[in-house]
Design a binder for these strands. Structure first.
Length: 376
RNA sequence: GGGGGAGUUCCAGAGCGGUCAAAUGGGGCAGACUGUAAAUCUGUUGGCUUUCGCCUUCGGAGGUUCGAAUCCUUCCUCCCCCA
């Protein structure tokens, strides 16, 4: 994997770049739809490819390890062939599950024991095993095993956890360097900065991660409930330390506003379940603001779902119809909303890139952020 | 014609003398969702005040009682069985 900065914004730290992988090019800033279990939920691949057109999607180590399991993924020839997706894939390491499945796991210096949310069976994840699993899955970009700390998190715990993540990172790097991908294309390992909301920890972690000298670097442990301002502060601090010539990936972020604000701080890659999950729950993100399509106010609004959207979902169906689908519990509702939201997120980052190239990003961001957060 | 059963807040359906503005489910209305245990979850759902509280409400009317959705009388409506 290679990364090259192509353009920089004059009035912010935003940059436009290009990532090259064996499965294709990724133009940054980029949003990566989340496809945890080898599928982006509620959308057909035809629509994902033809309507949404993402450059790269995510998978998840913990979930794919549980189902379908490594035997099947190896036999399938890796995640791309298994799910019929020939573009780049990034897999998260399971570090987020250390946070989200906190009641079902136990951390030790050696690794994490998860109790499966599916059948209750216990599975021990070490940094080495997580690398092995991600080798088997075969994503183009794989993540180091980390502990995503919760918010709030006391300093002592955050410090201890960061050191653990650093220890695991060294083990991940060593094991990664001593192994190879199985499917004939290259994989890249991204380390993850932790340190909760503490500046000194974030600084130390950003330096530690930078010293790993990997193809790209990630910022984790944010967007876990802390105020947006805190998230921006930590992101800026870390971005200023991470090397300029490496891609920066802010994990799990975020709202459209979060994304624009963090592009301005120098982040290149984002992922978030928000456009897909919230779509399934009836929330639409648009250029004008947020729509709760279940609200009564849309009952007789026969205008297109998004007059400015360029997918068939946006143009062909009305808000009133989409509301009807949601109110009726019809699965087409979540499907159409997912197409819309993902395409909107893709538009958002593409437009950000255009504005960066034209040197207009900062001003554009300013007007957009005021609009995007409005409730319609 | 004879016998039996039922009518409860938007719907279905509990309650069967006071702790009932009335369980529960559905529906309605609104909210949450950030490296996905989520097509999930939460709140609210008679009116007025909104702290206390007050008013109207359990088919209609009347009655018993300190007190009734709950007991009695009567009327209306609906359902089932037998002829």
């Amino acid at each position: 994997m290679k990364f090259k900065v192509a353009n920089r914004d004059q009035n912010s730290k935003a940059r436009a770049g290009i990532i090259t992988t064996d499965h294709g090019r990724i133009e940054t800033p980029i949003f990566m739809p989340v496809g945890t279990g080898a599928t982006v939920k509620a959308i057909h691949y035809k629509d994902l490819e033809e309507q949404v057109q993402p450059d790269i999607i995510l998978g998840n180590t913990y979930h794919l390890y549980q189902r379908p399991g490594m035997d099947i993924l190896r036999k399938a020839g890796g995640i791309h062939r298994f799910m019929s997706w020939e573009q780049p894939v990034l897999t998260d390491s399971g570090g987020y599950q250390v946070y989200s499945l906190t009641e079902r796991r136990k951390i030790t210096q050696e690794g994490v024991t998860f109790q499966s949310h599916i059948d209750g069976s216990r599975h021990f994840f070490t940094p080495e095993k997580v690398i092995d699993i991600q080798r088997d899955i075969g994503a183009d970009i794989i993540m180091a095993f980390d502990e995503c700390t919760p918010y709030p998190c006391d300093y002592q715990y955050a410090s201890k956890s960061m050191k653990l993540t650093h220890d695991w990172l060294e083990r991940c790097c060593t094991h990664f360097d001593n192994t190879e991908g199985h499917y004939g294309y290259s994989q890249s390992l991204f380390p993850i900065v932790q340190g909760s909301t503490y500046k000194d920890l974030r600084e130390a972690s950003a330096r530690f991660v930078s010293d790993c000298n990997r193809a790209g670097n990630a910022i984790g442990g944010l967007s876990v409930g802390e105020p947006a301002e805190v998230m921006y502060e930590m992101t800026e601090l870390v971005c200023d330390i991470l090397p300029e010539d490496k891609a920066r990936y802010l994990m799990g972020v975020g709202t459209p506003v979060n994304i624009l604000e963090c592009i301005a701080l120098g982040v290149d890659m984002f992922d978030c379940v928000m456009p897909t999950r919230n779509a399934r729950n009836g929330m639409l993100f648009t250029r004008e603001g947020i729509i709760n399509i279940r609200n009564k106010k849309w009952e007789t609004d026969f205008s297109p779902i998004d007059p400015e959207g360029d997918t068939f979902a946006d143009q062909r169906y009305s808000k009133a119809y989409l509301r009807h689908l949601f109110v009726s519990g019809e699965m087409l509702g979540p499907m159409l909303a997912t197409i819309h939201n993902l395409r909107f997120y893709m538009w958002l980052v593409k437009e950000a890139r255009n504005r960066i190239e034209k040197g207009q990003f900062a001003a554009w961001k300013h007007t957009m952020c005021a609009r995007l957060a409005q409730r319609l």
